[in-house]
Amino acid sequence: MTDIKADIDVLRGIDPNAPLLEVNDLHVEFRTRDGIARAVNGANFNLAPGETLAILGESGCGKSVTAQAIMGILDSPPGYITQGEVKYRGVDLLKLPEKQRRSVRANHIAMIFQDALSALNPVFTVGFQLSELFRVHRGMSRADAKKRSIELLDQVKIPAARTRVSDYPHQFSGGMRQRVMIAMALALDPDVLIADEPTTALDVTVQAQIMGLLAELQQQRNMGLILITHDMGVVADVADRISVMYAGKVVEEAGVYDIYSRPAHPYAKALLESIPRLDMKGQQLNVIRGLPPALTAVPKGCAFNPRCAFAQDVCRQDPPPPQYIVAPGRTARCHFWRDVVGDE
């Protein structure tokens, strides 16, 4: 698998010493009939090789949109990137012409999706859909591409890969289908893998297997992994760092240990407190009051203020809280982060 990149054009301007992936002040909006929905309002994070960054948040907080903006597969219209940078090894992907942008996908940055059944084309065999990558990006012959596809299915531990390669997606079980998705994403040996809720559609035992497989493949290849999820349990197991998103903003970014022990943003804290715990058996679950805001009408000031126990007048006024440095490599967008951390 190591020779596979040898004969392709290296992206121009790539600096091998620059950070693997940097997202700076990314803004995405959807221009809909009901007004402009600001799905992402200044997302920031970076990713190093071999690192797992979890992006955590409720449905509709802009996680998936952020991922699609990084990949460049946002549906446009209605989605537009209005501001920001997505730098891969120092190259701003948002400034690349479409053709080069396309060669970044699958070659350098790949993605897997939540529901593998709908994410795979139902009328083509998995072999066709895998081979396609080698034939389009590497100009391989059908026979060579098929051989490579079988190797890949073997690597993601699909039994009897040689025969299963000519099966259709609906003939696989949920877990096996997600393995096919992973094989497809890893086919061209990317440095960055974005997994958008990869295990949400699977049952718990299969979830663990898939996460285990992802972790193993990540280690073998020293890939950067962005794991988008709302499952705090999955995050605690595999992530190195966590970005918590709320209403299109990263409200807290920290190492996984720090955030679980002493969250610095009231939203992160509330999320953690809402996890069911064994030692709280019989008691009522903690919930976060209210609903996340509609993206067409994000509240003034801190978007979380209507639901926040710490909110004061300053939180209800623009400008929204800046990114406070809580500790080296740790930020929080809360005026009162000291109170939140110290509240233990």
């Binding site: 699609q68 990949m71 597969i73 396309r102 060669s103 970044v104 996908r105 699958a106 070659n107 790949a110 993605m111 999706f113 994410a119 795979l120 084309n121 396609e132 990558l133 389009v136 990006h137 998705m181 497809m184």
Partner: peptide
């Protein structure tokens, strides 16, 4: 979306 993510 998957097909586009594959760089086709």
């Amino acid at each position: 979306r998957t097909a586009r993510a594959k760089g086709l």
